[in-house]
Design a protein around this nucleic acid. Structure first.
Lengths: 209, 209
DNA sequence: ACAAAATATGACCATGGGTCACTTGGTGAC
DNA sequence: GTCACCAAGTGACCCATGGTCATATTTTGT
């Protein structure tokens, strides 16, 4: 009897539909001003039921953050698997794709940046945190793979440490400066995209063969 | 009669002592778990009085953040004014000093990283936000100046855009990756400091003459 | 048909940010 | 010296909201 399996599927579905509702509410009102009652209503459930699926408001946010990571992963995977580009050609595309992601999914991008805020309020060894960290590593591995492919096709210097560089880039993607992509020009005439692209240009010169 | 001046001084002093108290409380309990009552008690004032000096809990946090920026500014100024080093020699010191700052002032470092969180909840045109942005620009100018000095002493390529690079570095300093300096090793064997230093090493090769 | 288990409800609680009517004490005019 | 005035400070109070739990409903296996 597949009852247990079906129930599991339904539970998963319910969980997803709660996240759907939470996204609509949080993205609309902002995390701070959205209430769990709002989410419950939007999800057509009682507040109590929310807590059967997520331990806290912060954990619900982490679930959204995880979706953001998945979107980004998909984008980077596409780049990695593109066989028409050499490694070094893919490099500046990383910045380009990230900026595109930030502009096309501003809310999800925003959720990425609030990582620290929510993470602090979730149990460090909880399932959600663990799997979020895992997802994060996956993305770093994809970036790292792209660099390594460039080393194989000889367009990127062999002595570059791909793993370290991929982490540095990730830090760069999620810094305070890029976070202003959405909100402000840091300095007149300079918009944040230019800064990120310039940064990549410099690095490109440092790593190309 | 210097009464008005004296009162102004006293007001400033009171304000500073509230920030002192807030630092002790926030750094101890964490922003989330600290209450305004805690701060009031620590400052030997009533809760209502706090609101005569700061409009909200978030604004109080921004005041702390501003102090963090001032500490960092002082550190970078010292480097800028050191005449025994060439521009390019100063460059990797930027990373070194930042990491030292993060380790010696972990709480202030932490406060820097919560910029977005608190900023969102303060009026965008308020005095505190404005002066925080100003302070941030000051730091970027110092970094930029260091790079420009390297161009004058011919140790850094003339065609490097110092202003853009300084912003890129700032983004790098405050990314999610470096934020893990305090909390976790992202990947076994790699600690965040290594990543930042490696990043600087690559950039150094890209900008040196 | 029925008990047990899973799922869902919403009234309720505790907490804490922020307010405001009121008190206090220094100040300066007379 | 007196007194009206005002800035500075107080803390009881308001109320929004995250989270809980006793209870109700639905689904299940037998």
């Amino acid at each position: 009897m597949g009852v247990i399996e079906r129930k599991e599927r339904e539970k998963e579905l319910r969980s997803e539909s709660i996240i759907d509702a939470a996204e609509r509410i949080f993205f609309n009102k902002g995390f701070e001003h959205a209430t769990m009652n709002d989410v419950a209503e939007e999800a057509e459930l009682s507040k109590g039921a929310l807590y059967l699926y997520f331990h806290s408001k912060n954990e619900l946010c982490m679930a959204i953050l995880q979706r953001s990571l998945l979107i980004l992963k998909g984008i980077f995977e596409l780049l990695r698997d593109n066989n028409n580009l050499t490694g070094i050609e893919k490099f500046p595309k990383l910045a380009e794709l990230f900026i595109t992601f930030a502009k096309e999914h501003p809310n999800h991008y925003n959720s990425l940046l609030s990582y620290r805020e929510h993470r602090e309020n979730c149990p460090a060894t909880g399932k959600i945190i663990m799997s979020t960290i895992e997802e994060n590593k996956n993305i770093n591995n994809i970036i790292s793979d792209i660099i390594k492919m460039g080393q194989v096709d000889k367009t990127i210097k062999k002595d570059i440490d791909a793993d370290k560089l991929s982490l540095a880039l990730w830090g760069n993607f999620t810094g305070i400066m890029p976070s202003s992509i959405l909100s402000e020009k840091v300095i007149p005439d300079f918009n944040p995209e230019n800064i990120i692209e310039y940064h990549f240009e410099l690095l490109l010169n440092a790593i190309k063969t």
